[in-house]
Computed example of a mutant assay.
Amino acid sequence: MDARSRILHTYLGIAPRTSEEAALRLLVDLGLQYADAEEGSLLVLDRRANELVFAMTSGDRQSEKTLLGQRVPVGRGLVGLAVATREVQAGAPTFRDLHQRKRRGAAGGQPTAVLAAPMLVRDEAVGVLTAASFRPGRHFTRAHAAFYGKIAAVAGLVVDQQQRLAAVEQLGKGGRLPASRTREQRLQAEIIARVVRLTAGRPERLARVEALLAAVEALGQRQQP
C-alpha cells in the first residue's frame, strides 16, 4: 500500500480513485476556484496525536506528493488555530515547519496567504479545508472565508460518515479502529458492530434488537432532568 492509499484508508476510511475520494476532491476544487487560489488541501484530525494530517491536495500534483502525510499541531499556525477556535482563519501563514515545493518567485515555496476552515460535525472538528495563494500581496476576503466555511461543513459530514462506516466495517471483521477515533466514536462504532454481528444471517432478530434499543432509549429519556 503506497503512502497516499495508506493515509486515505487510515484517516478517511476511503480508497483511492473511488467516488468518496472524488467527492472530497470536488469540494476542495470548488473552494479553490471560488477563492481564486493556486492550491487547496484537506487535512484530517488525528485526535490521539492532536495533530492535523495532510490527506489530499488539489491544484498541484507535486505539492500533493510533498505535503502528503505532513502534520500540523492543533493550535499552531492558521490551520491549527482553525481547529482550536472552530472558526475560519485567514491571513499570512505563521507556521513555517512544512516542507513546500519550490516555486518561482515564492520565498522558500511558502504561500503568501492562507485560508483555513474547520470541518465541524456537531461542533466537533474532524479536520480542516485550506486554500493557499503564492501571489505577492494576495489576501482572502470575508466572502471567501464565509464560503469556505460552508464547503468545509459539507466536507466534514462526508469525512465523518466515511470514518464511521469504515470503523464499523473494521470492527465487523474483528479488526481495530483507526487511531484517529475518539473514545465516544469508538464506543458508538463498537455498539453498531455488535448489532451487525448479532443479526447477521438472522433477520428474525432485528425486531427484538430494535425493541430492546427502543426500551433503552426510553429509559434514558425518563432519567433526564
Rank of each mutant, 00 (worst) to 15 (best):
R4D: 09
L12S: 07
A15Q: 14
P16M: 01
R17F: 05
R17H: 15
R17W: 05
S19P: 03
R25I: 02
L26D: 15
L26N: 12
L26Q: 14
L27S: 07
L32Q: 11
Y34R: 15
A35E: 07
D36I: 02
A37H: 01
E39H: 05
L42S: 04
L42G: 03
A49H: 14
N50L: 11
N50E: 12
M56N: 05
T57E: 09
G59W: 01
Q62S: 08
Q62W: 04
T66Q: 14
Q70G: 08
V72K: 10
V72I: 15
P73D: 10
G80L: 03
P93N: 09
T94S: 15
F95W: 13
F95D: 12
D97H: 13
R101W: 03
P111D: 04
T112C: 03
L115G: 08
D123E: 14
A125N: 05
G127E: 01
A132E: 04
F134I: 03
R135P: 01
P136L: 05
G137E: 11
R142H: 11
A145L: 04
A153E: 08
V154C: 06
D160Y: 06
Q161L: 07
Q162N: 15
Q163W: 00
A167H: 03
K173I: 00
G174P: 05
R183L: 09
E184K: 08
Q185Y: 01
Q185I: 00
L187V: 13
I192P: 01
V195Q: 09
V196I: 12
A200H: 13
R202L: 05
P203M: 04
L206H: 07
L213P: 02
A214M: 13
E217W: 01
